[in-house]
Amino acid sequence: MAAQAATKPNPLPPCDRARAERGVQSAMNFCAHRDYLKADRALNVQWKKTAAAMRAMDRGDFVPDDGRPTYFDTLLKSQRAWIAYRDAHCASAGYQARGGTMEPMLVSFCLIDVTQERTKQLRELAESPE
């Protein structure tokens, strides 16, 4: 009977279990990366909405001919700059465990944070009045 209790499966999903048990680093790295991919998917969904909103503003009734870039062009330029920032910033965040097994997890945690913040910024931009 003791053997059955020892082999009883943990009811938590693998990533929740890895967090709860402070498990194997490779599992925690995998789970952190999976969470980043989820945040990245949410950002991409919001990007499409915000890009559409900026393109709509470019087609609006009052678009000054002042020689400056369009709403969408400015958004695209800022997104490209943000991606460069994200990558460099999160690489440096990983250096807290440079070369160690925790480094990928720290990078993923950073990627999650900055991606969620950028998603919020894009959402607010799309919702702002012209």
Rank of each mutant, 00 (worst) to 15 (best):
Met1Gly: 00
Gln4Cys: 12
Ala5Trp: 04
Ala5Gly: 05
Ala5Ile: 01
Thr7Gln: 12
Lys8Gly: 00
Pro9Gly: 00
Pro11Arg: 10
Pro11Val: 09
Pro11Cys: 08
Leu12Ile: 09
Pro13Ala: 13
Cys15Lys: 05
Asp16Ile: 03
Ala18Ser: 10
Ala18Phe: 09
Ala18Gln: 06
Arg19Asn: 05
Glu21Phe: 07
Arg22Lys: 14
Gly23Asn: 10
Val24Arg: 11
Val24Pro: 09
Ser26Glu: 13
Ser26Thr: 10
Ala27Gly: 00
Asn29Pro: 06
Asn29Cys: 12
Asn29Ala: 13
Asn29Met: 04
Asn29Arg: 10
Phe30His: 11
Cys31Thr: 02
Cys31Phe: 06
Cys31Tyr: 04
Ala32Leu: 05
Tyr36Asp: 02
Leu37His: 08
Leu37Met: 11
Leu37Phe: 06
Lys38Thr: 14
Lys38Met: 09
Ala39Pro: 09
Ala42His: 08
Ala42Gln: 14
Asn44Tyr: 01
Val45Asn: 10
Gln46Phe: 01
Lys48Ser: 01
Lys49Gly: 11
Lys49Gln: 13
Lys49Ala: 12
Ala51Gln: 15
Ala51Arg: 14
Ala52Tyr: 03
Ala52Glu: 09
Arg55Gln: 15
Arg55Val: 10
Ala56Gln: 15
Met57Gly: 00
Asp58Asn: 07
Asp58Pro: 09
Arg59His: 12
Arg59Gln: 15
Val63Glu: 04
Pro64Met: 02
Asp66Thr: 08
Gly67Leu: 02
Gly67Ser: 04
Arg68Cys: 00
Phe72Ser: 05
Asp73His: 03
Leu75Glu: 11
Lys77Pro: 02
Lys77Val: 07
Ser78Gly: 12
Ser78Gln: 15
Ser78Asn: 15
Ser78Trp: 01
Gln79Asp: 13
Arg80Glu: 14
Ala81Ile: 07
Ala81Lys: 13
Trp82Leu: 11
Ile83Arg: 10
Ile83Tyr: 14
Ala84Lys: 14
Ala84Leu: 10
Tyr85Ile: 03
Arg86Met: 02
Asp87Trp: 03
His89Asn: 14
His89Gly: 01
His89Gln: 08
Ala93Asp: 07
Gln96Cys: 00
Ala97Pro: 02
Arg98Asn: 04
Arg98Glu: 11
Gly100Gln: 05
Met102Phe: 10
Pro104Val: 01
Val107Asp: 02
Val107Gly: 00
Cys110Gln: 01
Cys110Phe: 06
Leu111Tyr: 08
Leu111Asn: 14
Ile112Gly: 06
Ile112Glu: 07
Val114Cys: 08
Val114Pro: 01
Thr115Asp: 06
Gln116Trp: 00
Thr119Pro: 02
Thr119Ala: 06
Lys120Ala: 15
Lys120Cys: 06
Leu122His: 04
Arg123Cys: 01
Arg123Val: 02
Arg123His: 14
Arg123Tyr: 04
Arg123Met: 09
Leu125Val: 08
Ala126Tyr: 10
Glu127Pro: 01
Glu127Arg: 14
Ser128Gly: 05
Ser128Asp: 10
Pro129Glu: 13
Pro129Thr: 12
Glu130Ala: 08
Glu130Arg: 14
Glu130Lys: 11
Glu130Pro: 13
